[in-house]
């Protein structure tokens, strides 16, 4: 049995505690995220309806943030699979704003281009592009562009449903535009200059 003196053990500690990633994510989240209060109880992962499709449970993601594993976290599919159901939020004993942290991680992954699957971020980008152009969401444009690019085969299978939506007047081929587009654009342009840090 090899033994180690405390000095030797200390010499093996490669990881100096560095909470900068945890703090960065917390500060970038709307409201007061309370991310640093996580006690690793696992209630979030145990409550999560899409946990089965996640690379890491929310609890694991928060531990990874504490460990400074930036790339691993921003490459994880976890925030992209989160369905914003808020089950975890109401069960978390520490009141961590888990769902909002997921939004922050998505935004960071997009900014740093770290995400691995392009479908979800591009869906969000297309959605936002339409809203920035018209001021209202534009389902027909969004759906056709998204499915053509990411799931053309699925689009064929969905044609009957899509047609049903069109015929029943539940989807319009023409976008609606708000009157105050100039005002909205000015607001959003100004907003894009700012960050919460």
């Amino acid at each position: 049995m090899p033994t180690m003196t405390d000095e030797q053990v200390r010499a093996h500690l490669t990881h100096e505690e560095d909470l900068s990633l945890l703090h960065e994510v917390s500060m970038k989240t709307a409201g007061v995220s309370r991310l640093e209060m996580c006690i690793q109880c696992g209630s979030c992962g145990g409550s999560c309806p899409s946990g089965m499709d996640m690379d890491h449970t929310p609890r694991m993601v928060f531990a990874m943030l504490r460990a400074g594993m930036r790339d691993e976290v921003l490459q994880s599919n976890t925030p992209w699979v989160c369905v914003s159901c808020y089950h975890c939020v109401v069960r978390c004993p520490q009141n961590v704003h888990i769902t909002d942290v997921m939004y922050t991680l998505k935004a960071m992954a997009i900014r740093e281009k770290k995400y691995r699957d392009v479908a979800a971020p591009e869906f969000a980008e297309t959605f936002v592009e339409m809203v920035e152009k018209y001021g209202r969401s534009y389902e027909f444009g969004l759906a056709t562009r998204h499915y053509l690019k990411h799931a053309p085969l699925r689009m064929v299978g969905m044609a009957a449903m899509g047609l049903g939506m069109l015929r029943k007047g539940r989807m319009s081929m023409k976008p609606r535009t708000i009157k105050g587009m100039d005002q909205l654009t000015a607001i959003l342009n100004k907003a894009k200059e700012m960050e919460l840090t």
């Binding site: 709307a30 925030p79 914003s84 939004y103 935004a107 869906f123 936002v128 809203v131 907003a191 919460l196």
Partner: peptide, 22 residues
């Protein structure tokens, strides 16, 4: 009068200040 889209769950996952401004 002349309300706009709330951004659904998409805009908040892209860019915080614009999403909340919307």
């Amino acid at each position: 009068e002349d309300w706009n889209c709330c951004g659904a769950t998409e805009y908040v996952g892209m860019n915080l200040i614009p999403a909340y401004s919307l």
